Amino acid sequence: MSGSTAAEAAAILKEEVDIVIPTIRNVDFLEKWRPFFQPYHLIIVQDGDPSKPIKVPPRFNYHLYNRNDVNRLLGPRAHCISFKDSSCRCFGFLLSKKKYIFTIDDDCFVAKDPSGKEINALEQHLKNLLSPSTPFFFNTLYDPYREGTDFVRGYPFSLREGVPTAASHGLWLNMPDYDGPTQLVKPLERNNRYVDAVMTIPKGTLFPMCGMNLAFNRELIGPAMYFGLMGEGQPIGRYDGMWAGWCMKVISDHLGLGVKTGLPYIWHSKASSPFVNLKKEYKGIYWQEELIPFFQSVSLPKECTTAQKCYIELSKQVKAKLGKVDEYFNKLADAMVTWIEAWEELNSSGEKSEALSNGPAK
C-alpha cells in the first residue's frame, strides 16, 4: 500500500478506531494531541481512587471509566483487571467495539521528525496495520510496503504477499523505556536517535513490548492483549506490556499474523523513579530468565484457530509449567481464563451497545 493510499485509508478509519488511555491524573496532555486525536473516540481508564475527579480538555469525544465501573460491569470477574497499575488499560480493550486500538500513556507527547515536522503517531500506526507483515523471511530494506522501498533481490516471490498485521509497536524519543537497574547506571541517558524504519519482527522471535505507544487490530489479536495481574496486591509490576507482548507474539506466530516495530515515535517526557521501578520489577527480572525460555518453547495445537482458543490453551501451559516457578503464575493463569470469559461476555451480540453506555460520555 502506498503512503498516500494508506494515509487516505487512515482518515476514513476514524469510525473504526478507539484511543485507550490509562491515567491517574487530569489528561491535559491531550491538548498537544488535539490536531491528531480530536476526530477519534477516546476511552479513558482512571486508575486509583475513583472518587478523584479527572479533567478532560473540552471538545473531545470520550468515555471515562474508573474502578467502580470495572466492578459494576465485570462483577465477580473484576479481579482480572489490575489496580494501581497502567495495565488497567486492558479494561478499555474489553469495552471497545472498534476494529483498531491505539493506546498511549499520559506522559507521552507529540514528537518531531528530523525535519521538525510533528509526527502523527496514530496515522503511522494505521499505515503499519493496514499493510502486510513479512514474518517468514527478513527483508533487508525493512518494510517493503512503505513508499520508496520494495523487496530486495533474492526475496522469495511466494512470500511477497505477506500476512495480515496484528500489532504495531512504536518507539520513544527522549526517555527510553529502560528498567530500573539500567536507569540507575545511566541516569542522564536520552534517546535522540530517530531511525526512519519499520520492520516485521520475525516469526519465532520474542520482543519486550511496551504499552505506551502501541496499536493493534482488535479483531485479529484483541483477546491476547491482556496485560496480566500487576500493581496493588501483586508481587510484580511494570511487566504488563512484556507479558502481553510475549503472549500476543506466540499467538500471532501460530495464527500466521505479523507484528511490526519501529515508527512511529512519540516524545516520552519523564522517567519514573528507578528505585520505585526496581522494587516493582525485581521479581520480574529474576523470573524472566525462565519466562522467556517458556515462551520460546510454547507450541499451540492446530485446533487453536482463534486468539481466544490460543489464549485458553496458553493459560493451561502457564499453569502447568510456570506454576512451579511461583504460585503467582497459577493465579495469573486463572486470571487469563477469566479475561477470556469477560471478553466473550462483553463481546456477545447482546452486550455490544451496553458496555459503552455505562460510562460518562462527552
Score class of each variant (00 low, 15 high):
Gly256Trp: 10
Leu126Met: 09
Leu314Lys: 03
Gly245Ser: 07
Gly162Gln: 12
Ser87Pro: 05
Ser357Asn: 08
Pro50Ala: 13
Asp85Thr: 14
Met209Gln: 13
Thr23Trp: 00
Pro57Lys: 00
Leu173Phe: 08
Asn120Thr: 08
Gln124Tyr: 11
Asp143Ile: 02
Leu94Asn: 03
Ala6His: 05
Ile12Ser: 11
Asn213Val: 02
Gly231Ala: 08
Asp28Asn: 12
Phe138Pro: 01
Trp246Tyr: 12
Gly48Asn: 11
Arg190Glu: 14
Ile43Met: 05
Asp49Ala: 13
His125Gln: 00
Arg160Gln: 15
Lys97Asp: 08
Gln288Met: 08
Asp179Gly: 15
Lys112Ile: 03
Gln288Pro: 01
Ala10Tyr: 01
Leu184Thr: 10
Arg89Phe: 07
Val110Trp: 01
Ile12Met: 13
Gly245Ile: 03
Ser252Ala: 15
Ser353Ile: 02
Leu122Thr: 05
Gly162Asn: 10
Ile21Gly: 04
Lys55Phe: 12
Gln46Gly: 11
Lys319Ile: 05
Gly116Gln: 04
Gly258Trp: 00
Asp105Asn: 12
Cys310Trp: 10
Phe102Leu: 08
Phe227His: 10
Tyr194Lys: 01
Arg193Gln: 06
Met212Phe: 14
Gln183Cys: 07
Cys88Ser: 15
Glu219Lys: 00
Pro144Ala: 02
Val152Trp: 13
Glu15Cys: 05
Met212Gly: 10
Ile43Asn: 05
Thr205Arg: 02
